[in-house]
Structure formats: structure tokens, C-alpha cells
Amino acid sequence: MKLLSLVISLTLGFLLLLATADLPDWGDPQSPASIHVSNYYIENSVEQTSVPNFVTSVLADYRGYDTMFETIVIFCAGITVLTILRRSHRQKKKEVRPRPAREGKDLILISAARIIAPMMQIFALYVVAHGHHSPGGGFQGGVILGSSFILLALAYDLETILKRLKERSVIIMSGIGVAIYMGIGMICLFLGGNFLDYSAWSSVLGVSAVEARSHGMLGVEIGVAVTVMYIMFSLYADLSSGGEMDEGL
């Protein structure tokens, strides 16, 4: 098996090595990827959407469909892990768990986590809200928000956190995140624009069409952040407890 895999890998490697000769040089400004559609984004992003971070404007506005379905993929991944691992009440407590039981609580860890977690959450909200002007946005902010809850679940145990953040509400909220994204897109249709064309919001928000696109992007980033946050926590809860939702890691 090892020999076969080595042969396959090396053959593929040789073929790709031949192909690198035709690829453009590293850092070449005239490479084919950099002379077509991306120039449009660089030239027009600030004028059309008033967002200086091109990555955010392309992510949430010009290629909004793409990001919408990526969010749905994240949602589906969370639901799939839940379906694979979660046991019904009848199946529980049949087998012995291989991992050691948790002994007591660590005071230092808990004290540190109680200070760090709120700061992480505030920073995550900043990342979501300031994604237009600096690196960041819905995905990053959502992951940081989710990992603040993961930190709390590591310091205490999973059951304590699940009392505050119920499993049912986690799934409902992650669906609501997707619904926020699609809802903002749908309302554009009723306001007379295309799907996900946020400039249609200008009459409702009372701002210019350019500003409305900027605000619409913030709205969909919030939707993405909600979905990613709850799904990250749900993935952690399922994977660390083996679907039993007991004490966690």
C-alpha cells in the first residue's frame, strides 16, 4: 500500500512539476488571475460601496450568492455532526467510556477564563462591525465568538454552559443566522431591486444607495457571524462529548 501510494504521489508530483513551467512567475502583476475581473473590484469598490476593504466588499456584495451558500454549508455541517453523533435516550449508558473522568475544577483556569471570555466577545463584535475597514468580518468574528464559549466550556464543564446555551436554541439560532442573510436578500426583491442588491434598501434606511450597500453588508456579516458562532459551539459540544452532551473535554 505504501509503495503504491508513493508511486501515485510521485507520478502526480512529476506531472504537476512539468505544469509549473507554464505558470506565471511569483508576484507577477501581469499574471492572468490579476488582469481580468479583480481589477474591477479594486477600482470600483470604494466608489460603489464605500467599503475600503476589498475582501469584504467582494465577499458580501459582489459575490453575495457564494457567501450565502457557504453559510448554508456550515449550517449543514453542524446538523450532520449532530445527526451522526447524537444518541437517543435509550442508547445511552450502554458502554463504558474510554476517557478518564474529570476530577474537580481548576480555580486558576476558571478565574482566567472568566476574565478572558468577555474580552474575546467584545473583540469579536469589533471584528464583525469593523470588518469594512480592517481585516475581519462575519466568519472571523463568528469563530472568535464561538471559541469564547468553547473556552468557558473547557474551564467549567460542558453541562454548565449548556444550561445557559441550550442545545435546541443553538440549532434554532444557527438557522436564524442563515435566515438573516437570506431575509436581507429577499427584502431587496420586495423593495424593487435584485436579490442581494442592497442599494434597494436606500429608501428604507434613508441613506444614499452607496451607503445602503455598506449597511447591507454589515447586516449579512451579522447573519454569517451568528451562524458560524453557534455552529462552532455545536461542533465542539458534539465532538468533545461524543454526542452525549455530558461533561465535555
Binding site: 479594486i42 469598490s45 470604494v46 464605500s50 467599503v51 475600503p52 476593504n53 476589498f54 475582501v55 469594512h132 475597514h133 480592517s134 481585516p135
Partner: peptide, 8 residues
């Protein structure tokens, strides 16, 4: 990096 200075 792909972020302009014009903003806010």
C-alpha cells in the same frame, strides 16, 4: 494589502 486608506 487589499485595503485602501479611504474609508469612514
Amino acid at each position: 494589502i487589499p485595503i485602501t486608506e479611504h474609508g469612514h
